[in-house]
Simulated scan of single mutants.
Amino acid sequence: MTDSNPTIDATAYWTTAKEQGELRSEKIQAPGRGEALVRALYSGISKGTEMVVHHAAVPPRVASEMRAPHQEGEFPGPVKFGYLSVGIVEAGPEEWKGQRVFCLNPHQDRYVVPVDSLTRIPDNVPSRRAVLTGTVETAINALWEAGPRLGDRVAVVGAGLVGGMVAKLLRSFPLERLQLVDLDPAKQGLANALGVDFVHPDEAAADCDIVFHCSASQQGLERSLQLAGDEGDIIEMSWYANRDVTVPLGEDFHARRLSIRASQVGVVARARRHRRTNADRLDLAASLLADPVFDAFLTGSSSFAELPAVVKELASGRRDALCHVIEYPTDSSNRT
């Protein structure tokens, strides 16, 4: 008698409790109609958000809004979380078989998802670099939100993964001035690789039309308010999770009629929402990754088996990274 509902062995990373995580074996159902089985090649650790989950710091009030698309479990845990996965389709609709794809899926070696959750990776984009698709998507959304114009003066405060990505995309805009601002002088190397001017916060030029704040710090937001010109815009990309932030609204914000706008990738920015879908945004992000300069954001790699230890090292500060890549056991011929 044949099994009409076969299962497939899989292994996934779970945050089991505050600052604890492990790899768990599980059984997944074979793909049904309109679904695909994906074998992971690489996944990326989105350090900011995933460390919030690791520290059990997701505020209950916004827990439902902060769910990842294919998350299992609930915050604070046990929860399977993550959203930067690249793999190859092993089973599913014929036109998808063998395709390299990006998916907003947690760290898992094999998974089944609807095919409309998949983004095809262009032939000129290496699989390892493609883990950045979700972060490029975040940066695209922020630029759609801000709408930079010809001759603008722009600052990006915070030279982490998201801030650096925003600066990289802005480099191609016809701006009068673009500065990447950070306290850490070591971020000069990233700025050099991106071809962007790097400055310490004390030396950043003021009178900006737009300031993108990406430092996730109170001090960074304060400095962003100071750098914006009269009636300028601060695009707030940081997620503070359960931390309280005090902002001096009685100074620059009120006197100079500034605006602070949140940019969050869960929905397409309002300026493009009626003409672009999430899938359109992901396709655009994947296509932009043909530029090899994006490799500057890939700052280390480890095997899937090492993932629980790597997360702890990132959380404690013993390991630094922009995007740390996780490699899955597979036939090396598929690692293009």
Rank of each mutant, 00 (worst) to 15 (best):
A40E: 07
L41I: 09
Y42K: 02
S43T: 15
S43A: 15
G44Q: 05
I45P: 04
S46D: 14
K47C: 10
K47A: 12
V53I: 12
V53L: 10
H55Y: 08
H55V: 00
A56Q: 12
A57T: 10
A57H: 13
V58H: 04
P59S: 15
R61Y: 12
R61F: 14
R61T: 11
R61Q: 15
V62W: 05
A63C: 07
E65L: 07
M66R: 02
M66G: 06
E72G: 08
E72R: 15
G73I: 14
E74S: 04
F75W: 07
F75R: 03
P76I: 12
P76M: 11
P76L: 10
K80L: 06
G82Q: 00
L84I: 01
S85N: 09
S85E: 06
S85Y: 04
V86M: 04
V86E: 05
V86D: 06
I88E: 11
E90S: 01
E94Y: 11
E95P: 12
E95G: 14
W96T: 05
W96E: 01
Q99Y: 10
R100Y: 14
F102G: 06
C103D: 00
H107Q: 08
Y111D: 08
Y111H: 14
Y111C: 06
V112R: 05
V113G: 10
V113Y: 09
P114V: 07
P114N: 08
S117P: 09
T119P: 00
R120E: 13
P122E: 13
N124D: 15
P126E: 11
S127M: 03
R128E: 08
R129M: 14
R129I: 14
V131S: 11
L132Y: 09
T133Y: 03
G134P: 12
G134C: 12
T138N: 13
A139S: 09
A139E: 01
I140T: 01
L143D: 01
W144R: 00
W144K: 03
G147W: 01
G147K: 00
G147I: 01
P148A: 12
P148T: 15
L150E: 01
L150I: 08
G151P: 10
G151L: 11
V154M: 04
A155C: 14
V156C: 05
G160P: 13
G160I: 10
G160Q: 13
L161A: 09
V162W: 02
V162T: 03
G163D: 06
G164D: 01
G164N: 03
M165C: 09
V166N: 02
V166T: 10
A167F: 11
K168S: 05
L169N: 02
L170G: 02
L170T: 07
R171I: 07
S172N: 11
S172K: 12
F173E: 03
P174H: 05
P174G: 06
E176L: 00
L178C: 07
Q179S: 13
L180C: 08
D182K: 06
L183W: 13
L183M: 11
L183A: 13
